[in-house]
């Protein structure tokens, strides 16, 4: 089977080049490994091989997938993720993950006295299956215009703690995701479509907007439409 791979090395000229390879494998990752036995310079990440560590996300024909669970097709175009620093070939930096999660304060801020019950666990069950593979981040068009956007995985994780009954400081959590956060999402749903774990960040962002409303925060984008804002 033949696939095309967009390769990158910052000190080669040209830096970006499209290569064609023959290879085989049940998954794209196996195929990349197979190609690497012949071309040792081909660079990609590999980990658990079972879709749970999140290290091997790439784009195939423009759509984010995990290489270890994607079945390659003839003439597929394989590219690195978007909106994170490309280090070499299919490897991208993951440093944005820590930055975004910290800015979103995506952790338990202050434990409440309440015990989590079955129902509350189910509310956040899907969100806590996130593997931080960055597929959603790469698919998000907001990054074309706003590099500081908190983005889908950080907002999903924020919601996961906001909705957790064990969190006392829900308001502080919401305050952390107002700027470059919940109001900047275009609700296009790309993130939901590409998530390998079936998480729906778009909906989580809507839920956060609901919480924000209850705490008296308004969507600042509405105020520019005069009578829709509160400031008139």
């Amino acid at each position: 089977m033949k696939i095309r791979i967009r390769r990158y090395h910052p000190s080669f000229e040209p830096k970006v080049k499209l290569f064609e390879y023959e290879g085989e494998g049940s998954t794209l990752l196996e195929m990349l490994e197979n190609i690497k036995t012949k071309d040792r310079t081909l660079t990609f990440n590999k980990g658990c091989r079972s879709g749970i560590c999140g290290c091997c996300a790439v784009k195939v024909n423009g759509k984010e997938v995990l290489a270890c669970t994607y079945e390659p097709k003839e003439n597929d175009l394989v590219e690195p993720l978007s909106f994170s620093e490309n280090i070499r070939d299919l490897v991208c930096s993951a440093s944005h993950i820590e930055t975004l999660l910290k800015r979103a304060r995506a952790f338990l801020e202050k434990p409440s006295n309440k015990k989590q019950d079955e129902e509350n666990e189910k509310t956040i069950r899907k969100q806590t299956e996130c593997i931080l593979c960055s597929s959603c981040h790469s698919s998000c068009p907001v990054y074309e215009v706003n590099k500081n956007f908190l983005g889908p995985f950080a907002l999903t994780r924020s919601y996961r703690y906001v909705a957790d009954i064990r969190e006392e400081e829900k308001r502080e959590k919401i305050e952390a995701v107002l700027k470059d956060g919940i109001w900047d999402c275009t609700l296009c749903g790309n993130c939901t479509e590409v998530c390998p774990q079936g998480i729906d960040p778009k909906n989580d962002i809507l839920m956060l907007q609901g919480y924000a409303g209850r705490f008296g925060f308004q969507n600042p984008n509405l105020s520019s439409f005069g009578s829709f804002g509160l400031d008139f």
């Binding site: 989590q116 019950d117 957790d164 064990r166």
Partner: peptide
């Protein structure tokens, strides 16, 4: 682990 937010599967509470 519960106090820092681990979402263990529950039966009731």
């Amino acid at each position: 682990l519960d106090s820092i937010g681990t979402p263990f599967t529950r039966k009731k509470d």
